[in-house]
Simulated scan of single mutants.
Amino acid sequence: MSWSDREFVDVERTNGGLRSGIVIGRVNDTDLAGRIWNFVCNVREFKDAVNRGGLDNEAVRQKIAEWDEFREEASGRRKGRRRAEIDYVSYHGDVVKALRDYREGKACKGERVVNSLLVDLMVKVDDTMTEIYEVKTDCGRQSLYTAIGQLMAHSVGMGTGIVRTLVMPEGDLPHGLAPCFAELGIALRRFRLTAAPNRKVVLL
């Protein structure tokens, strides 16, 4: 889980209880087979990385420690997600990957495009963060408030030149938030999901 870009979520069951896991997709979705194949390929990539010894280093051990700490903190504030949210939640990792591929394609000499447990994506030059991205899979007010806090908190001390970007689905912003993003210097990048059955992420 610490290796992948997939979001570990609590899903509300029909009996009202919660079940934690990786959301792949809804059973009755027309693109479910493609979602399962995407997940299987992700697992294969992880196993290949293990076999190459790519996870046997201090950076990975630190990321695992951060993951364990994050899950411990989250255990006291669990809430479920209803089926209306699941369609986009299952694509969180795909959005991060599309964003990473895009940014790596235009990286300048010395720039590294990386992520961590707490930051969806960032650009670094040496050890200095120059860009930070937060991906949200809905346009709800609470989700956007959270994104603002994450972007600001995880870029403290990086100076005035850092570029902060919130990546979110296309759609209307809650009233009053557009001037808030402008004043805080947070750029917006939108994405959409194409139609099933060959659904994919398109950055706008």
Score class of each variant (00 low, 15 high):
188 L>T: 06
110 G>Y: 05
136 K>Y: 04
22 I>L: 14
48 D>T: 09
166 L>Q: 03
84 A>W: 12
59 A>Q: 11
122 M>L: 11
108 C>V: 09
159 G>K: 06
144 L>V: 04
125 V>F: 05
103 R>N: 07
98 A>W: 02
196 A>Q: 15
150 Q>H: 09
97 K>N: 07
168 M>H: 02
35 R>L: 02
40 V>G: 05
30 T>S: 14
6 R>I: 01
131 E>D: 15
13 R>A: 12
69 E>D: 13
196 A>T: 10
172 D>G: 14
82 R>P: 00
38 N>G: 10
202 V>F: 02
93 G>F: 03
146 T>W: 08
14 T>S: 15
48 D>G: 01
192 R>N: 07
50 V>C: 15
57 N>I: 01
78 R>E: 14
187 A>F: 05
160 T>I: 06
120 D>N: 10
88 Y>P: 00
79 K>E: 13
25 G>L: 03
7 E>H: 10
25 G>P: 01
133 Y>Q: 07
1 M>R: 09
44 R>W: 06
146 T>H: 12
43 V>W: 03
83 R>W: 09
156 V>W: 13
159 G>E: 04
182 A>I: 03
108 C>I: 04
81 R>S: 12
173 L>P: 06
163 V>P: 00
15 N>E: 09
19 R>A: 11
186 I>H: 06
131 E>P: 00
32 L>T: 01
71 R>Q: 15
95 V>E: 03
91 Y>P: 01
164 R>W: 04
143 S>P: 00
123 V>P: 00
109 K>E: 15
47 K>H: 09
6 R>C: 05
195 A>E: 15
82 R>V: 05
